[in-house]
Design a protein around this nucleic acid. Sequence first.
DNA 1: GGATAAATGTGAGGATTACTCACATAATCA
DNA 2: TGATTATGTGAGTAATCCTCACATTTATCC
Lengths: 207, 207
Amino acid sequence: MSSNASHSRATPRKKPRQRRSQATWEAILDAAAQVFGQQGYAATTNTVAERAGVSIGSLYQYFPNKDALLMALAERHISEAGLVLQETFAGLLRDEPDLPETLQRLIHTTVALHEQDPAMHRLLFDQTPRTPDAVARFRQLESLLAAAVAQQLVRLGVGGPHPQARALLLVQGLEAQIHGAVLAPPEGVGREALVGEVQALWLKALS
Amino acid sequence: MSSNASHSRATPRKKPRQRRSQATWEAILDAAAQVFGQQGYAATTNTVAERAGVSIGSLYQYFPNKDALLMALAERHISEAGLVLQETFAGLLRDEPDLPETLQRLIHTTVALHEQDPAMHRLLFDQTPRTPDAVARFRQLESLLAAAVAQQLVRLGVGGPHPQARALLLVQGLEAQIHGAVLAPPEGVGREALVGEVQALWLKALS
DNA sequence: GGATAAATGTGAGGATTACTCACATAATCA
DNA sequence: TGATTATGTGAGTAATCCTCACATTTATCC
């Protein structure tokens, strides 16, 4: 089924050395984004290769298995999100806003990240198999993010006895709440109100 | 691949009418729990049938596809969790405890549900494909749970302008935080401390 | 009790699909 | 230019989900 290659690795099987191979690699990844985005993870690797205009053999020259293709898409998506987050934290370090404003910015960024490319987000979150590798990678990112948040909490004097722990809870809770609000909005309450409620809750929790 | 049956339905294909068919149905489910629990979603349906001591044809007489088998396992797991939750809420309605005690009980139950059968929980959460059906089913349960929680918030006078919305945020946030604390405990902080921090945060948020 | 119908069980095989490998082509280097 | 290395190809293999034509067991009726 999924990833039964001898010691499956998610990294590209071969690093491109010439310009044309780089182009091939990108063509495959772009095709994967399109095809998986439309048909979900059930889409076949042959379809991806066809859409990319390369043979199925070339696909497997760069990605050892189907999961690796998704992981590569995830990496790309994550690195884009990383840039946005880096910008947000740079702003916080520069302006040193108070707690309400800090929360406001963090929440706004989280919402923006979820609204940016819902199809891709849903594909990666709902349909990509959660291999141990993928889970570990996600946890690592979460931890990194928590560290940056912890720094802010400490600056604002609301870190408590275990800033890193508190920050982790904030990151996990916020992600789940915003994810639900944006991708599965409940009836009867507008997204605006819901996001406002999130901010109010965390503001009280941290004050 | 996954669920390409014409209009896939997750319900058993055939309702058992005789006692032996009921036995077959349960044998298959029990075998599925064992085999999938050990080998994950990659385990084959033929292995499940073999373990159950029935032919592969019989398996597909009761479950239209592999996903349906997992869904049935999920239903069973969820209904057990439902009993625990029902008990918790019955206790809250009976005793009408104050906010700290109410939160304490809700959190304790959530922790217990995650510690109960971590293997099955991980299987269903991490490895079972999130089909639209499965996602919808989960959201529905979440909503039901939120309604019960909202009732408690209103009773305690901390429901705010939109008790249902606030309750939903509580349910989603709590689930994510406890899930992380129990199934992926961070280093440096004990689970006890982490759970305590969760309670403190929500207590302040709702007071 | 025997005959008929309905329910349940079987497993070889069809259809799909992830992935391989022996070989062809293109680029680089001496 | 010839040799070597990098890149590309696609028919074929193995694995696996699922079907279907048929066998067997149980229930129903006279």
